Simulated assay, not measured.
Amino acid sequence: MSREPNSGEIYLEFRSIGRQVQVIAMDAATGIEVSAFGPTSASQTDLKRIAIRKLQRRIEQEREAAGTGSDPTLY
């Protein structure tokens, strides 16, 4: 069993902060991380969808900034 992150693998963390929930999404392969906030009344599925979409957009922006279609690197 390999400990290397798989392409497309995303880690999610949910944190309650008062009447809000912070969702942190991190791409395992690139280490790119974003966060999103929502009310505690929002469903976890909706918050997850928002955070993943925000992460995907950020990865797209990193690729565009690099001028390539390949995965961005942090080095």
Rank of each mutant, 00 (worst) to 15 (best):
Q20P: 00
Q20N: 13
V21C: 08
V21N: 09
Q22S: 05
Q22E: 04
V23R: 08
V23D: 02
I24V: 15
I24P: 03
A25E: 00
A25L: 04
A25P: 06
M26W: 00
D27A: 14
D27K: 15
A28R: 03
A29H: 03
T30C: 07
T30I: 03
G31L: 01
G31E: 02
I32T: 12
I32K: 13
I32Q: 09
E33G: 04
V34E: 07
V34W: 04
V34N: 10
V34F: 04
V34Q: 07
V34H: 07
S35N: 11
A36R: 11
A36S: 15
A36Q: 13
A36Y: 03
F37C: 07
F37Y: 03
F37A: 06
P39V: 08
P39N: 13
T40N: 12
T40D: 09
S41R: 14
A42M: 12
A42R: 09
A42K: 09
S43E: 02
S43T: 15
S43I: 12
Q44L: 07
Q44T: 07
Q44S: 10
Q44F: 01
Q44C: 05
T45E: 11
D46L: 13
D46P: 00
D46C: 04
L47K: 07
K48Y: 02
K48T: 15
K48E: 14
K48M: 12
R49Q: 14
R49L: 12
R49W: 05
R49S: 12
I50H: 10
I50P: 00
A51L: 10
I52F: 05
I52E: 15
I52D: 10
I52M: 15
R53T: 08
R53S: 10
R53V: 00
R53Q: 10
K54G: 02
K54M: 01
K54L: 00
L55E: 07
Q56H: 06
Q56G: 11
R57M: 09
R57E: 09
R58V: 03
I59F: 00
E60A: 07
E60C: 03
E60F: 06
E62S: 11
E62G: 04
E62T: 06
E62M: 15
E62I: 05
E62C: 13
R63T: 08
R63K: 15
R63F: 06
R63M: 15
R63D: 02
E64R: 14
E64C: 04
A65Q: 08
A65R: 12
A65I: 02
A65E: 05
